[in-house]
Design a protein around this nucleic acid. Structure first.
Length: 548
RNA sequence: GCGCCUGUAGCUUAAUGGAUAGAGCAUCUGACUACGGAUCAGAAGGUUGGGGGUUCAAGUCCCUCCAGGCGCGCCA
């Protein structure tokens, strides 16, 4: 089913021939939706916009959906949806298995690349953003009917493994007893050792060569380190309640076998050129080229990400690629996309989007960096939040705090702010859900029939009922917008507004004390509210408990 | 030096070029002893960093300046 907004928009465009750019009214007294088409057309034609508005409204017959159209101010056309239509749509969405969310006519294969922690390091709060943002994307895209492929591009390859493996050998560590926290400590010891001891640094370099050469013992230790980290990541993902699993891991190393071939291919076709001993691709708009192979013959992350694109198109037949990393990597991905397009690996029909999010800053406003002893691990933040709330509520607070503002903005890491449970927060939304669930529970206990066969919204007499219904019918359009623009804060803002409308309804429209048809209709309105809140929170990766 | 991002109330923030810039927190005042007070109603709090420009209309677009952050060839 098409969202109500889209239906109205299409209807108006069909008659007037112009896109009305219908949008929600800015204030209740302006109705439900508004268009400024008359203002734009009036300006184009040098005519009085109010006269144009009168002409347009006279030509439009929307009486099956709307109250009579109103012209206001300089020429706005205000639209109010009929209460019986709102009631009908609320009911239809409630009974729809997809809650009214429009299903993709042509489902896409969408690869979402997110989380991407580094082996032998615990995830810290910086990884939180990528993980929960990407998790939200996969949920939204999936509910729209797309085929979502999660990819966790972990850092499982590189020079750091030389020092890690040497340090393990020096200390004769038993890898069977090592966990992720231990390997992070090991990382720090190895790093200190590296800077202090040139002889160790030499051995570390040699160990990198051994790893790249596939020397069996080295390879075995490397593999064990990855397994230890993967187990640690899995534990954190489980605690966070995100969808990533072990099967979604496709680390950098998984592309090693493709790298030489890509270099050969691009060089043979003249796309890549040798420059100062490195094999590079110059990309318009960037001074520095993408470096496929460095002058020492090593492969870097540019070519690895090009290989990942090939894999995702050749093997997953992706229609859309989404990357969720911090904003600092934007140039890197734009270059990689450009190289892949030049090479023909990435056709123009496949969208590639880098969703860059802002950095997490320290309390002093400087970039939050992992420093020895000062890194705030994800688990520490979760522990702090759970000190004053249940895990469900604590997670809601943290996730909502991260998703509810624009992604590209930096924010200061502040546990007190991120774990708040009052006001515009995740727990507030959960609370609204719990309250409406409580009403439904009591109603059912008193014999109210609220199964699908009996759920019909029949009356929306009071303004608060209508306002709530209007908020409910907007859900599908908001989900569609988030799926397209990848802006979770739009969904957060919508759900907060919905919860606010529910509060107004809750204050002014008694449900259990009402009688007959009004009581039943309000119960169903409550059921629809619970459905949208729980579904919407679900898309944010937040649980919607019935009691809290 | 080049490029990208940010600047909105004390703090955190919203706003597809549209009507009186909308919320939350904190502050102040209230809510039939409550269909759950993690709530609700109200008050106060804004020259949207400064200055130009485009437009019927600018927080939003253009120019410029200021402040802060990030990125700029062989780390990932």
């Amino acid at each position: 089913m098409a969202p109500l907004l889209a239906t109205l928009n299409d209807r108006i465009q069909a008659v007037t021939g112009i896109d009305p750019e219908l949008r929600p009214a800015t204030k209740p007294q302006f109705g439900h939706f508004q268009t400024n088409a008359a203002l734009r057309r009036g300006a184009e034609q040098g005519r009085n916009p109010r006269a144009v508005a009168a002409e347009l409204t006279a030509a439009l017959d929307l009486s099956d959906i709307c109250e009579p159209l109103e012209i206001a101010g300089p020429g706005f056309i205000n639209i109010r949806v009929r209460a019986d239509v709102l009631a009908r749509v609320v009911t239809a969405n409630l009974l729809d298995p997809h809650s009214g969310i429009e299903q993709a006519g042509q489902p896409q294969a969408v690869v979402v690349d997110y989380s991407s922690p580094n082996v032998a390091k615990q995830m810290h709060v910086g990884h939180l953003r990528s993980t929960i943002i990407g998790d939200c994307f996969t949920r939204v895209l999936a509910i729209q009917g797309h085929h979502v492929i999660r990819q966790n591009h972990i850092g499982d390859w590189g020079r750091q493994f030389g020092m890690l493996i040497e340090q393990i050998r020096d200390e004769q560590l038993d890898l069977d007893t090592l966990d992720l926290a231990d390997s992070e400590a090991l990382y720090l010891r190895a790093n200190a050792h590296l800077t202090a001891d040139p002889e160790f640094a030499d051995r570390a370099r040699a160990r990198v060569v051994a790893l790249q050469g596939g020397e069996p013992e080295t390879l075995a230790i490397w593999q064990r380190l990855i397994e230890i980290s993967a187990a640690g990541f899995a534990a954190t993902y489980s605690r966070l309640g995100v969808l990533l699993t072990r099967d979604d891991i496709a680390g950098e190393s998984s592309y090693n076998a493709m790298l030489a071939g890509i270099c050969t291919d691009l060089e043979a076709r003249g796309i890549a050129t040798m420059d100062n001993g490195a094999l590079v691709v110059f990309v318009p708009g960037f001074d520095a080229p993408a470096i496929l192979r460095n002058s020492a013959g090593g492969y870097g992350y540019d070519v690895t990400d090009v290989a990942a694109i090939r894999h995702r198109l050749d093997d997953f037949h992706a229609d859309r690629l989404v990357y969720v990393t911090d904003a600092r990597q934007q140039d890197h991905f734009l270059k990689v996309f450009a190289v892949a397009r030049q090479a023909g690996y990435l056709p123009d029909t496949v969208a590639a989007e880098h969703v860059g999010f802002g950095m997490v800053l320290g309390a002093d406003g400087t970039p939050f960096k992992t420093r020895e002893g000062t890194a705030v691990h994800l688990d520490d933040l979760l522990d702090e939040a759970e000190a004053t709330a249940t895990p469900e509520v604590a997670l809601a607070a943290i996730k909502y705090a991260d998703l509810s503002n624009q992604l590209h903005k930096d924010y200061v890491f502040d546990p007190a702010r991120m774990t708040k449970t009052t006001g515009d927060t995740g727990p507030y939304l959960q609370y609204a859900h719990a309250r409406v669930s409580s009403i439904l529970r009591l109603a059912v206990a008193e014999g109210e029939q609220l199964d699908d066969a009996h759920s019909v919204v029949t009356t929306l007499d009071k303004p608060e009922e209508q306002a709530l219904a209007l908020a409910l019918v907007r859900f599908p359009e908001v989900v569609a917008e988030v799926g397209e623009t990848l802006q979770p804060h739009k969904l957060c803002g919508y759900l907060y507004d919905l919860a606010s409308q529910f509060s107004g309804f809750y204050e002014h429209c008694p449900v259990l004390k009402a009688a007959g048809e009004t009581r039943h209709s309000r119960c169903v309105l409550g059921r629809a509210t619970a459905r949208v809140l729980s579904t919407g929170l679900g898309l944010l990766g937040i649980a919607a408990p019935e009691t809290m």
